[in-house]
Design a protein around this nucleic acid. Structure first.
Lengths: 191, 191
DNA sequence: CTAATTTTTGACCTGTAGTTCAAGAAATAG
DNA sequence: CTATTTCTTGAACTACAGGTCAAAAATTAG
C-alpha cells in the first residue's frame, strides 16, 4: 500500500550512473541528477538517501555490468588473442564514439577518490581483481586449447593485460583511433 | 619599485601543485590553497588571477618537471631494459611511499577534465607525446648499442610502454608493491 | 468513507566556493 | 617628505551545493 512510485528505480540509477561517469563524483550536483533522471530532488533523496549513497549504487551497477560484459565477450568463439583483441577494440571504440570521452568509470572513481573514500576504492579494487581473474581464466582456457604457450604464467600475463587495458583507457582520452589500435596490436603480440 | 613580494612565486606554485595533485582540481578550494601556501586568499588571486589559471601553471610545472626527470633518468648508464625498469620502479615507489596515493597528476587531470577543459587536455596530451618521444629515443639508443633487437618498431614499442606506465600508475592506486613489481617485470620481458 | 501508509514536490536552510575590493603597508623616485 | 607603485589582507558578495521538511497526493485496509 501507500502511494506507488512514479519512476523505475533501476532506470533512475542507470541515468545517475551515466551522469557520474561523464562528470565525476565531485562535479555532479543534485541539480545535474534531477535533470538527468527527471526526478525531483526531494524524491531522489527520499529514494537513495544521499549523493554519496546514490553514487555507491551507481558504481556497483557499473562494476556489475562491466564484469558481465567482459565475461560474455571473452567466452565467445575465437582464439584467445582474437577475443582479447575484440574486447580491447570494443572498449576503445566505446570511449571514442561517445559524445564525450569519459574513460572507465571505475578508474575515474579511484583516480578521483583514492585516499578520500576507502569504500569506493575497495569497490574498484574488487572489480580490478575480478577482471584479472576473468583474464586469467581465459588465458588458461587458451592454454588447454593449445592457443597460448603453456609455459606462460597465466596470472602474471593477466595482470599485464589488465594494466594495459587501464593504460589504454587513459590513452583513449587523448590519442586517436589508429594509434590506439596499433597499441592494442603491439600489446597483444606476445600472446 | 612598489612593495616587494612576501613570498617566492615558485615556492607557492610548487605547493599549489602538490595540493592539486593530491586533491584534484574540483576538490581543491581557495581555502585549501591558502593553507598549503601560507599566502592570503587575496594575494593568491592578485598573483595568479584565478583558480583555473593557478592550476594551469601548476600543471605546466608538473609536466615540465616530469619530462626532465624522465630524460635524466633514462640517460643514466645501464641497458635499456635496466633503465626502464628502474624508471618504472621509481614511479611505483613514489606512488606507494607517499602519505596518500595520488597517481600521476597529468593522468588525474585528463581523467577529471577531459571533455570539460580542452586546454588542460591538450597540455596533458603534449606531455604524453613527449614521453613517447623520450621512450622512442631510448629504445633506438638501445638498438644502436645492440641492447635491443633491431627488428623492433621503436615508436610502436614506446607507445606500449607509455600505455603500460599509465596503467601501472592507475594500478598503483589499489594494488600492493609485489604485484606491481611483478607487472613491471612481465611487461619489460619482451624488450 | 476513514485511517494508515508511502511518495512527490518545491520551498527553505546552512555552509562554502570562487571572486572582488577597499583600505592599508612597504618599497622607490624625485 | 610626497607621490607613485605594487603588494597584503580580511571583509563582503553572489551563487550554488547538499540536504531537510511539511504539506499535498495516491494508494490499500477495514
Amino acid at each position: 500500500m501507500g502511494r506507488p512510485k512514479k519512476f523505475e528505480p533501476d532506470v533512475v540509477l542507470a541515468r545517475a550512473m551515466e551522469t557520474f561517469w561523464s562528470k565525476g563524483y565531485a562535479d555532479t550536483s543534485p541539480a545535474d541528477l534531477v535533470e538527468a533522471t527527471g526526478v525531483a530532488k526531494g524524491s531522489l533523496y527520499h529514494a537513495f538517501g544521499s549523493k554519496r549513497e546514490l553514487f555507491g549504487r551507481a558504481l556497483d551497477l557499473y562494476c556489475q555490468t562491466g564484469a558481465e560484459v567482459t565475461e560474455e565477450f571473452l567466452s565467445r568463439p575465437g582464439t584467445t588473442k582474437e577475443r582479447f583483441r575484440a574486447f580491447f577494440v570494443l572498449l576503445v571504440d566505446l570511449d571514442l564514439d561517445g559524445p564525450v570521452r569519459r574513460g572507465c568509470m571505475a578508474q575515474n572513481t579511484v583516480t578521483e577518490l583514492a585516499g578520500q573514500d576507502e569504500l569506493a576504492t575497495r569497490r574498484v579494487h574488487r572489480m580490478e581483481e575480478r577482471m584479472v581473474q576473468l583474464f586469467t581464466a581465459r588465458i588458461q582456457h587458451g592454454q588447454r586449447d593449445g592457443d597460448v604457450d603453456r609455459g606462460l604464467d597465466a596470472r602474471a600475463r593477466a595482470l599485464c593485460l589488465q594494466t594495459a587495458l587501464a593504460g589504454l583507457r587513459t590513452m583513449a582520452l587523448t590519442f586517436d583511433r589508429p594509434t590506439l589500435y596499433q597499441i592494442i596490436d603491439t600489446t597483444l603480440e606476445g600472446l
